[in-house]
């Protein structure tokens, strides 16, 4: 084992510290001291209100929050897995080798525009249902949609990526 641990020092790591010296604690930041690791004194300090390190939750998200020392559970924070009914699904775990390789280009915003709006615009133009600025006189639901409303609808899913 000694040979291996000496090998790891060959991996180049160069650091410049611009802050004041870390009171000699610098090296010990390198190790992962998850909840149960460390000396008795360290763990006692971790249990006290001014803990040094955050609780390592191992990637698990909270299902609530602490309020005045008590845990409040929020039903919306509990993940819910919605599994579709696969009774009449034709898809199986593997794909047959007979299937051709599909190389598909990216679905662009212009293609989406063409699919949703272009047909309506062409028919409106032919029937003279466009005003002087080119806006429809009888707009469809998609044409009435404004950007802020569209963002609101996307956020209503509860997804936090928008």
């Amino acid at each position: 084992m000694s040979k291996i641990s000496s090998l790891i020092n060959f991996i180049a790591k160069r650091n410049i510290s611009l802050t004041t010296p870390c009171e000699g604690k610098r090296n010990f930041r390198k190790f992962v001291l998850a909840n149960k690791r460390g000396s008795r004194i360290h763990k006692q300090q971790q249990m006290s209100p001014n803990r040094e390190l955050e609780v390592d939750k191992r990637g698990v998200r909270d299902v609530g929050y602490y309020l005045n020392g008590r845990f409040v559970q929020v039903p919306e924070m509990i993940p819910e897995l919605i599994v579709p009914d696969l009774k009449d699904c034709d898809l199986n775990p593997y794909v047959s080798y007979k299937a051709e390789d599909v190389i598909q280009s990216e679905f662009t915003a212009q293609q989406l525009f063409d699919a949703v709006y272009s047909k309506k615009i062409v028919t409106d133009f032919k029937q003279g249902k466009l005003d002087a600025e080119g806006l429809p006189l009888e707009p469809s639901d998609e044409e009435k949609l404004q950007p802020d409303e569209a963002i609101k609808r996307a956020k209503r899913t509860g997804s936090d990526i928008f």
């Binding site: 593997y94 794909v95 299937a99 699919a115 949703v116 998609e142 609808r153 996307a154 997804s159 928008f162």
Partner: peptide, 26 residues
Amino acid sequence: ENPDKDTTAAVANKITFAPKLQTFEM
């Protein structure tokens, strides 16, 4: 093709995607 495990070529090549003015989640 193994009918229990393989998605057949005809099913795999079928295009079921229809462009909509919605996000995936919606």
